[in-house]
């Protein structure tokens, strides 16, 4: 197992390269999910305000 992770002494290079790719490829969709939530929240808020204005 340790032999696998050491990658013949190049483990730190290989795993940091994989780690950077993984981190960015998780960060991107997570930020998209958060952005989508905030946009939906905003649109709902305007919609609610419009509905209230119509009632009055």
């Amino acid at each position: 197992m340790t032999e696998f992770f050491s990658m013949g002494g190049f483990g730190i290079f290989i795993w940091s390269a994989m780690g950077i790719a993984l981190a960015l490829m998780i960060l991107e969709p997570v930020s998209l999910i958060m952005k989508r939530r905030s946009v939906i929240k905003q649109i709902k808020r305007t919609k609610r305000l419009d509905a209230r204005r119509k009632q009055n």
């Binding site: 190049f10 290079f13 390269a17 950077i20 790719a21 960015l24 991107e28």
Partner: peptide, 21 residues
């Protein structure tokens, strides 16, 4: 464009690490 940017950063970063070795 944004996904392209992410891919470019990954390519440059992993390339740099590979270059070091």
């Amino acid at each position: 464009a944004v996904t392209g940017t992410v891919m470019t950063i990954i390519a440059l970063a992993t390339g740099a690490i590979w270059g070091k070795t």
